[in-house]
Design a protein around this nucleic acid. Structure first.
Length: 621
RNA sequence: GCCGAUGUAGCUCAGUGGUAGAGCAGCUGAUUCGUAAUCAGCAGGUCGUGGGUUCAAGUCCCACCGUCGGCUCCA
């Protein structure tokens, strides 16, 4: 993106230079001012809050009597266009504090006065845009005419300074770009995201639902979603067994004493449900799986020879989430973690972390994700353990990331109560990041649970523990997958892989034989034998995102060997008529077994294999 | 939880105080069709739930429930 701003004035009120904003941030910051100017001119009673640029645009908070309506936003947009056309200069003003306070008070901007009192020095830096003035460090564009493409997106509630109890404000979100083309692209991307919304696709493809009768944040997996989950789980288990893990299972509730020992009742209370009374003893619905795996570890005396021990479980946990944050499959109250706990000696943790990193990346790749953002989260305010332990653990995580050449950012204070963690946010096809994988070091629980192993020296030692989830939770991962693939799952996951469509009733028998051959080859096939037109059946198979449609009509049904079909692929369309069924069966079986994830799965048409006719090999991957 | 919006058939939605509607999906029948919607008929609703106002409430008022968008991000 090219910037219309050549030399931004980055200096603050005392002449110091502030960290440089990127050109688009400056542009959007000025866009936010433009919004505020328009709002103030249309609603003179409005008080301005803050208005920063954001990742994808900007917002501005206003204290107004009446919330904004879509119509009033249109009016604001119109006013903004007017101000752009006027090409008002945006000018920096340095004003003595007392005078600034008077100026803003005269404009009825009590919130700005509050900010000035809190943040400004003796000299207050402001930017003007005609009569509109804002307390602001800038920098800004030289004039409003530089803003070429801007759009208001929504309005919503927010709280002054984001604090509960503070006055409720109205936030207007918008975005702006250097060119109209970029804005159009962005708006198109929003539409595309809507089209891929997993809640909508979940209903349309009959994958899952959430029912009022069962409760918010609790997922009902329908047969098709359940089938995909089964495939994911089977693959996951196979990979874990091959990767040196043991599979374990644990119950959904446990005596509250277990959670007292682990410290969950102390540190994690806010996310836990109320205890359940069972014959006078309190039981707790599990928010995590770790105490169970630890208890399995502790069930007998362990030797250093056994370590590292790796216990894996698809464990369903329940966590309290405030009603307002629930969101489809992505934020729920009951979910199944693809969890594992590794128990090892202190000198083994680097190798184990690296091993997990390799496992994560290969697992994500298998599902079509190979781009991610990596974060290392450090000690939070309310944490267990000594600074020294945290330092050792954090350093181990960073070392392993360095060893694998994975770039990361530090997320200060975002670790769990028992240790620091690596979070991996996967990027989907629309470039959105989703928090799924996590790797956490834990010195806390081995101590709490008095875990031991007998070392070479014959003495008891305390193991170190790693928590990790690769996919995160099956619910969230499924939601991300739905959006990533827009519901068009890779062949190996698709509930139905092929729909056989007879052109007319006359070919029903032949179509049945084709379906049987596919079924015998282990391909998930559905014969659409309804009394409908072919176009109707194709349309339905398309909207259900079935990878392949095998169309059989008069021409195909003439083949006594039942080896001729016409093939249509959900994204490539018609792949030609009268091609060889056996070759397709072979191809689909192979792509499915290979768990191919890209549309490279689309093979070129081939003639049917008939004795003297040579098999074409072109186009076969 | 808080702010705002919203809740009518399985889905998408119309219905601004006076007899609950459409399209799609479903069911029945006719049709047998060459790459994204064949035709006809039938059925489908305690208008989120509970109160209230009114001669009369899907519609107005109140409460509750659910859903959607937002609630860290320097002036």
């Amino acid at each position: 993106m090219s910037s219309p701003l050549e030399l931004p004035d980055n200096t603050g009120p005392s002449g110091e230079s502030k960290p440089a904003d990127s050109p688009i941030e400056i542009y959007r910051h000025s866009s936010a001012h433009l919004l505020a100017a328009a709002v103030c001119e249309l609603h003179p009673e409005a008080q301005c809050g803050i208005g920063p640029p954001t990742e994808e645009g900007f917002f501005y908070d206003f204290l107004v009597k009446e919330p904004f309506t879509p119509e009033s936003l249109v009016a604001v947009e119109k006013r903004m266009a007017h101000i752009i056309k006027q090409n008002r200069p945006i000018e920096k003003k340095l004003i003595p504090k007392a005078e600034a306070l008077e100026l803003f008070a005269a404009k009825g901007q009590a919130l700005k006065c509050e900010l000035i009192r809190e943040k400004a020095g003796d000299v207050v830096q402001c930017y003007t845009m005609g009569d509109f003035m804002d307390f602001c460090l800038g920098p800004h564009l030289p004039s409003t005419g530089k803003i070429k493409a801007i759009k208001l997106l929504s309005s919503s509630g927010s709280l002054w300074k984001g604090k509960e109890g503070n006055p409720a404000m109205q936030r207007i979100h918008g975005t702006s770009f250097f060119t109209q083309e970029e804005l159009d692209q962005y708006l198109h991307r929003i539409e595309e995201a809507k089209r891929r919304d997993h809640r909508r696709l979940g209903r349309e493809l009959d994958l899952f639902s959430i029912a009022d009768e069962t409760g918010s944040g609790l997922i009902l997996w329908h047969p098709k979603g359940g089938f995909i989950r089964k495939n994911i789980e089977d693959f996951w288990r196979d990979q874990h067994l091959a990767g040196g893990y043991d599979l374990v299972y644990s119950p959904h509730i446990a005596k509250i004493d277990l959670w007292n020992t682990s410290g969950h009742t102390q540190y994690y209370k806010a996310n836990m449900y109320s205890p359940i009374d069972i014959e006078g003893v309190e039981y707790q619905l599990k928010p995590m799986n770790c105490p169970f795996h630890i208890t399995i570890y502790n069930s007998k005396l362990r030797s250093y020879r056994e370590l590292p021990l790796r216990f894996a479980e698809l464990g369903t946990v329940y966590r309290f989430e405030r009603s307002g944050v629930l969101h489809g499959l992505l934020r729920v109250r009951g979910f199944t973690q693809d969890d594992a706990h590794l128990f090892c000696r202190l000198d083994q943790i680097d190798a184990e972390i690296v091993r997990v990193l390799d496992f994560v990346t290969s697992m994500l790749k298998a599902f079509g994700f190979d781009r991610y953002d990596v974060y290392v989260s450090t000690k939070p305010a309310d944490a267990s353990g000594t600074d020294e332990q945290w330092e050792i653990a954090t350093a181990a995580l960073k070392r392993s990331l360095d060893e694998r050449g994975l770039k990361y950012e530090v997320d200060p204070g975002e670790g769990t109560f028992y240790g620091p963690k690596i979070d991996i946010k996967i990027k989907d096809s629309l470039d959105r990041a989703w928090q799924c994988s996590t790797i956490q070091v834990d010195f806390h629980n081995p101590n709490r649970f008095k875990m031991e192993y007998i070392g070479e020296d014959g003495k008891a030692h305390q193991p170190v523990m790693l928590h990790r989830a690769l996919l995160g939770s099956l619910e969230r991962f499924f939601g991300v997958m739905i959006e990533h693939y827009a519901g068009a799952f890779p062949l190996w996951l698709a509930p139905t892989q092929v729909v056989v469509v007879p052109v007319s009733e006359v070919q029903l028998e032949y179509a049945g034989k084709v379906a049987e051959k596919l079924r015998d080859a282990g391909i998930r096939v559905h014969l659409d034998d309804r009394s409908e037109r072919m176009g109707y059946k194709i349309r339905e198979a398309q909207s259900q995102k079935v990878p392949y449609m095998f169309v059989v009509g008069k021409a195909e049904a003439a083949d006594p060997a039942v080896n001729t079909v016409s093939v249509r692929h959900r994204s490539a369309g018609d792949l030609g008529s009268s091609t060889g069924l056996d070759a397709w069966i072979h191809k689909i079986s192979r792509l499915s077994a290979e768990r191919a994830v890209t549309e490279g799965e689309v093979p070129a048409p081939q003639p049917p294999a008939k004795g003297d006719q040579p098999m074409a090999s072109g186009g076969v991957r």
